[in-house]
Write a protein that binds this DNA or RNA. Structure first.
Lengths: 170, 170
DNA sequence: CATTGACATGTCAGTTCTGGAACGTCTAAC
DNA sequence: GTTAGACGTTCCAGAACTGACATGTCAATG
């Protein structure tokens, strides 16, 4: 149900079309809330029907530019302040750990080593991303930087943990 | 699609009924892969229809005990070795961070402070859980301990990050 | 013997999500 | 001119998931 709020959030910065939002998603929110194209267009229609956003302009190729309404902004604020994240996140990654013993130890260690590598690679990708961005003082920069820092710390922690875990097996 | 594998994994330890699995889930896997009762019974039926598990005994009150078949074990091993976790996990928590600037700074800091507290509480809960369990040398203890350690490290990291982030705002 | 609570399964309507297919338009480059 | 590629939207079948409701049995307690 939070794709809704992700879209409201993006539109709170500036008006955009579904296509624009799709692009913005790819380069930012996709990491924390993956969504497909069909899901986004569907959700935009619903948001529009619910009056949280409105078609503020139509461009070439049937382009529809959506703008956040006051009601939409209220809903976004409400979501941020009155509701708390609750859904336990699913982790395919950790689920596997529970059943590692059905594999021979060297395979299990192999999985953990792969995890460590993957975390390291993601860490480096994020570092490069961090360096490639011209961080300003604007709100989006501050928030984006904070979210990115979370990713950095997560991947660092994950790598260390995977290495620690590999040692415990066998 | 991984509830399937969670169930296969649990059944690889020993045969169990849907009800048994439900209980086992609550106390272990629920943290990494939440699932409802209806989902589990539905999935058990499908697994049985697909020949990955089989009804090995029927008990009182319509109890059906399921046992992993060879085919099921093969599928479990295949999942563990041949496939890689890919789905980016959704994080309601991080999603909010992106839009924190629509709130006044003190509210934003309040959210991060709440996050830090929550992480601290979860950390302590896990510590208590860790101490309450009699960890043996069996495979499940080893794996469970490893998964728990992940939770500990994650919450520790999250708390530090939230405190760091609160400092950056305003 | 009545009741409570754990045991035990099944079904269903409604929603969300996935992974595509389909369709059409504009622009720049060749 | 035409064609490739970016732009742009809509629809859909099927799977997964949620949050109930429905139904009944067995064992122990009072």
């Amino acid at each position: 149900m939070s794709l809704r709020h992700a879209l409201l959030g993006l539109l709170s910065e500036r008006p955009a079309s579904g296509y624009d939002l799709l692009k913005r998603f790819e380069t930012s929110l996709a990491n924390v809330w993956p969504a497909t194209q069909s899901q986004m267009y569907t959700e935009l229609s619903k948001l529009s029907a619910d009056g949280l956003i409105t078609v503020s302009a139509e461009g070439p190729r049937g382009r529809k530019e959506y703008t956040l309404t006051d009601e939409g902004l209220t809903e976004l604020r409400h979501w941020l302040t009155e509701t708390r994240p609750q859904r336990n996140t699913r982790s395919d990654l950790l689920l596997r750990v529970f059943f590692l013993d059905v594999l021979p130890p060297e395979h299990a260690r192999g999985y953990l080593a792969w995890l460590a590598d993957m975390s390291q690679r993601e860490y480096e990708d994020l570092r490069r991303l961090e360096e490639s961005i011209d961080w300003g003082d604007d709100p989006l920069s501050v928030n984006g930087r904070i979210a990115l820092e979370y990713g950095l710390r997560l991947n660092a922690m994950r790598r260390e943990w995977a290495e620690w875990a590999a040692d415990r097996i066998g």
